[in-house]
Computed example of a mutant assay.
Amino acid sequence: MKDRQVEQTHAQQRIPLLSAILHCMSMTVLVFLRSSFGYAFLRPKSIFLAGSWAFILFSIYAWNEPAVWRTNKGLCLFGCTSATLYMFHLISVYVTEVRDTATHDNDSGTPHILRLLSWLKTETTSELRNLVVMVVEPALVLSAALILRLGGQAVNNLSSWLIYTAFAMFLKEGINYWLQIRQRKRYRDAMNDAEEGFGSGNTSQADLPAPIRKAKVKRQRVW
Rank of each mutant, 00 (worst) to 15 (best):
R182K: 14
S108I: 03
F41D: 08
V68L: 12
Y187A: 15
L49W: 15
D3N: 11
V93T: 04
N202Q: 09
K214S: 11
V132H: 04
H10W: 09
L85C: 00
L179Q: 13
R213I: 15
W223I: 12
K73R: 08
C76E: 02
L171D: 03
I181V: 13
L179C: 10
Y164D: 04
A20K: 14
S92W: 06
M191D: 11
N202D: 08
S52W: 00
T101L: 00
E97Q: 11
V141S: 07
R14N: 10
L18R: 04
E127K: 10
E173D: 09
Y94D: 02
S200W: 07
Y39K: 05
R213S: 13
F167E: 08
S118K: 14
F78A: 04
L208A: 08
F58I: 03
V132L: 04
Y164V: 08
V133C: 06
V29H: 03
T110G: 01
G197I: 07
S36E: 12
L18N: 03
S204T: 14
S143V: 14
G152S: 00
M25W: 13
V31S: 02
K172M: 11
P209D: 04
R149W: 04
A144C: 15
S46V: 07
L22T: 11
A20R: 09
Q180Y: 10
Q183M: 05
S82I: 05
D105F: 08
M27N: 01
N202P: 01
Q153Y: 09
G199P: 03
C80V: 01
A215V: 09
Q205V: 07
R34H: 12
N202T: 12
H89V: 01
K172G: 08
P16E: 06
G79V: 10
Q153V: 09
L114D: 01
E127D: 05
Q220H: 07
I56L: 01
A206L: 15
G151E: 10
L120N: 02
L148H: 06
K172W: 14
V98P: 02
L158H: 07
W223N: 11
Q220W: 04
Y94T: 03
I60V: 15
S200K: 15
